[in-house]
Simulated scan of single mutants.
Amino acid sequence: MFAKKKTAMPDTITVINLVWTAVIAVMMTATVTLYQDKNESNVRYTQLTGSTYEQPYY
């Protein structure tokens, strides 16, 4: 009885999903591009320790 009208414009959820997927793809591409030339042997990390320095208030 009621026919659904076909529209050329996709619904809002589809647009949001497409935009979100595109954002994730761009972020992953940028991450791979930025870190593909990194050499792990040249990276120096600061060692974090669990020691604390307590200073009295008085």
Rank of each mutant, 00 (worst) to 15 (best):
residue 14 T to D: 13
residue 4 K to D: 06
residue 15 V to P: 05
residue 32 V to L: 09
residue 11 D to E: 08
residue 43 V to K: 05
residue 16 I to N: 05
residue 36 Q to D: 03
residue 31 T to C: 14
residue 11 D to K: 14
residue 35 Y to D: 03
residue 3 A to C: 02
residue 42 N to Y: 01
residue 5 K to Q: 14
residue 44 R to Y: 02
residue 25 A to V: 04
residue 34 L to H: 02
residue 20 W to G: 00
residue 9 M to E: 12
residue 45 Y to S: 05
residue 53 Y to F: 09
residue 18 L to S: 13
residue 9 M to A: 11
residue 58 Y to G: 08
residue 6 K to G: 01
residue 5 K to I: 15
residue 42 N to P: 01
residue 53 Y to K: 13
residue 54 E to K: 05
residue 38 K to V: 15
residue 41 S to F: 07
residue 30 A to I: 13
residue 16 I to P: 00
residue 12 T to I: 11
residue 52 T to L: 10
residue 2 F to L: 05
residue 7 T to F: 07
residue 50 G to Y: 05
residue 14 T to Y: 13
residue 49 T to N: 14
residue 55 Q to R: 05
residue 55 Q to S: 06
residue 53 Y to M: 11
residue 12 T to V: 07
residue 26 V to F: 03
residue 51 S to H: 02
residue 27 M to T: 10
residue 16 I to M: 03
residue 26 V to K: 00
residue 56 P to G: 06
residue 49 T to Y: 09
residue 1 M to D: 12
residue 12 T to K: 14
residue 41 S to H: 08
residue 53 Y to N: 07
residue 25 A to C: 11
residue 19 V to H: 07
residue 54 E to A: 04
residue 25 A to L: 06
residue 36 Q to C: 11
residue 46 T to F: 08
residue 3 A to E: 04
residue 17 N to H: 02
residue 2 F to Y: 11
residue 47 Q to C: 05
residue 56 P to W: 01
residue 54 E to P: 02
residue 34 L to I: 09
residue 10 P to S: 13
residue 44 R to E: 06
residue 13 I to A: 02
residue 11 D to S: 14
residue 50 G to I: 00
residue 56 P to C: 08
residue 18 L to Q: 12
residue 58 Y to N: 04
residue 28 M to F: 15
residue 39 N to C: 03
residue 1 M to Y: 02
